[in-house]
């Protein structure tokens, strides 16, 4: 039994998301190898070699993998992964794009977004926006799995000394190409790794008002998130969306401001350790999950909170 982990990286550094999949793989048992597919990605591979618990790092350094195009990377994953019992990655948009494509090339299913490892073939995963948890047994010889990052601690980034091995397989399907990136710049912590998150909803009224949350977040070293309604209304960019179909987060503290608490939003944050809700409607469903609820107009409460931190 051995697991192949698909690393997430930007060629120069390994993303922390990868470390959660390593922990899930440790619970499965057996050797853990990491595949780093990219272009000029040796530095990321060297980082992967230091992760505690990793036996071997395979580096596929080729222009075809430069932008993680699924058509190319999935072929590589299927080819390399054919020799493993498990192929795993943390469920980020990148892994969600590539892994199912690789699974189908291997003629196996995928078990998405696991929360629990019960045994080498049985896993727990949320369905119906997390309103039910299914215990699923894989019947395939190769188990392709994405891992919910918030459900598994990050493995130690240091302490390992895996061998790094280059693989020459170059797969260019030739049907897709990268055009451009529009990456939102932010100095704040990433949503999925932040210890504290301050999120705004439709109640914020407009994008400018998010500056109030930014100020609170700066004082707390927090990330800023949003409900889909706030994203839809154009207040903030899409990558701030928390929920069933956005990011799944579980910080120590989640502050929901002007968010009603629809099931799709709760699906993304209800595993937070402490939840605070600030809402002027005392019947808002968010109060059913909040440890501390404040019924107040956010335009008064948030500036006051800001001044008292």
């Amino acid at each position: 039994m051995a697991t192949l982990i698909i690393a997430e990286h930007d060629n120069s550094t390994l993303k922390a998301s990868t470390l959660h999949a390593v922990t899930a793989a440790q619970q499965v048992g057996g050797d853990i190898d990491v595949l780093v597919a990219g272009s000029g990605c040796q530095a990321a591979a060297d980082e992967a070699a230091k992760v505690a618990g990793v036996s071997k790092v395979l580096v596929a350094d080729n222009a075809a993998y430069a932008n993680q195009l699924a058509e190319n990377v999935a072929k590589l994953v299927a080819e390399v992964g054919a020799g493993y019992s498990h192929i795993m990655a943390t469920s980020t948009p990148e892994a969600k794009n590539v892994l199912p494509r690789a699974a189908a090339l291997l003629d196996v299913g995928q078990i998405s977004d696991i929360l629990r490892v019960d045994s080498a073939d049985t896993f727990g995963r949320p369905i119906y926006a997390g309103n039910a948890i299914a215990t699923v047994k894989s019947l395939d010889a190769i188990k392709v799995i994405t891992v919910r990052g918030t459900a598994f601690e990050a493995a130690a980034a240091e302490g390992g000394s895996a061998a790094v091995e280059a693989i020459s397989a170059a797969h260019d399907a030739g049907v897709s190409s990268f055009v451009s990136d529009e990456v939102a710049q932010s100095d704040r912590p990433e949503l999925t790794s932040a210890k504290i998150i301050v999120s705004g909803g439709r109640g914020m009224g407009n994008g400018e008002n998010f500056a109030m949350l930014d100020s609170v977040a700066d004082k707390l070293g927090a990330a800023v998130g949003a409900s889909r309604a706030a994203v839809d209304a154009g207040f903030v960019p899409n990558d701030m969306q928390v929920g069933q179909t956005g990011k799944i987060v579980a910080p120590d503290l989640y502050v929901a401001v002007g968010i009603s608490g629809a099931i799709q939003h709760l699906a993304g944050m209800k595993d937070s350790k402490y939840i605070v809700a600030i809402n002027k409607d005392d019947e808002a469903p968010i109060f059913q999950v909040a440890d501390y609820g404040l019924v107040a107009d956010l335009f008064e409460a948030v500036p006051e909170l800001d001044s008292k931190l």
Binding site: A132, T135, V136, K137, S138, L139, A290, D291, V295, E304
Partner: peptide, 23 residues
Amino acid sequence: AHSEVLRVDTPEERQAGIKVASV
């Protein structure tokens, strides 16, 4: 069939906390 659902459970419900009166 590529997988089999062994069981389905209700997730642990989160208990509502308290309302605070002020910031």
